[in-house]
Simulated assay, not measured.
Amino acid sequence: MITSSGSAPSPRRRSEKSRRATLTAALELCAENGYGKVTIEAIAARAGVSKKTIYRWWPTKGAVLLDAVTELVVSHSEFPDTGDIDVDLRTHIGMLVNLFNSTVMGPAYRGILSQVLHDEQLARAVNDELVIPRVALVYERMRGAQEQGQLPPDADLPLAVEMLYGPLYYRHALGRPMPDPEHVETLVAHVMRALRSPERS
């Protein structure tokens, strides 16, 4: 096809359009039918691309959905820096709760988490592409708060991150209701109080 300017469309632009269509199709199918019923064939048909195109970029449907979920998390759960670490944690955790509750991301990520028990390659990808970078983001924000004196210099920040975010993944993986805003506020308050307690060992 030739554009009105007389030049052929950029291959890079065509590739990005196909990639986006594939990610959108995968999320839609997962929301409609559940992770287990999603196939590469169905994704290709919905996206209007060939199976060969999909396999050129992703080895499995889990990899497709992981890319889609990662993009959602990165674009919809920024970590603010208002100067108040407690407020920022409540905001960030609230954003993640909304994502886990959404029909767009919720079923896809739950399916991925179930699949990592049987797929070592996907498990590594989940950690390398999603979990580790996001944990590092939270850790660095808390380090900044520590340097500003909002947290004790000897606070165990990696443990704090697990205490704050572990309950979300536990609930999501088991299909339990996500915490409401009041519960999120209580969670952050309890963890921050434990970090600041002069009696902690």
Rank of each mutant, 00 (worst) to 15 (best):
H172E: 11
G83I: 08
E185F: 05
D81R: 06
P177T: 11
Q115K: 07
M192R: 00
R141M: 01
A136V: 12
P179V: 08
D84F: 02
P59W: 08
D180Y: 07
R90C: 14
M142Y: 04
F100M: 11
V188S: 04
H92L: 12
H76E: 14
G149R: 02
A125K: 00
F100A: 09
E147K: 11
A145Q: 01
R176D: 10
K61R: 09
P158A: 11
T82S: 12
H118C: 12
V69S: 02
I85G: 07
H172S: 08
D81M: 04
Q150V: 13
R171N: 11
A63G: 13
S77H: 04
Q148S: 06
L174T: 10
I93T: 11
A155G: 15
G106Y: 00
A145Y: 01
S77G: 06
H190D: 15
Y139F: 11
L65Q: 03
I85E: 12
S102Q: 12
I85Q: 01
L195K: 02
E120K: 00
A123V: 06
E185I: 10
I112D: 03
A108D: 10
H92V: 02
V87C: 13
I112N: 05
H76V: 05
G106R: 04
D88Q: 01
L117G: 15
P133Y: 14
V191C: 04
D86H: 04
G94W: 05
R176G: 09
P107M: 01
E162P: 15
Y109F: 06
E182G: 12
N101K: 03
Y169M: 04
E71Y: 14
S102K: 09
L117R: 14
V135T: 09
S102G: 08
L89Q: 07
D81F: 13
D180H: 13
P167I: 12
P179K: 03
M105N: 05
Q146I: 04
D128E: 09
I93M: 08
T91F: 04
W57M: 09
Q146A: 10
P167T: 05
A155T: 11
K61M: 00
R143P: 14
H190Q: 13
V131E: 08
A125C: 13
L96N: 05
Q121T: 15
T186M: 07
D128Q: 12
R56Y: 14
H76F: 05
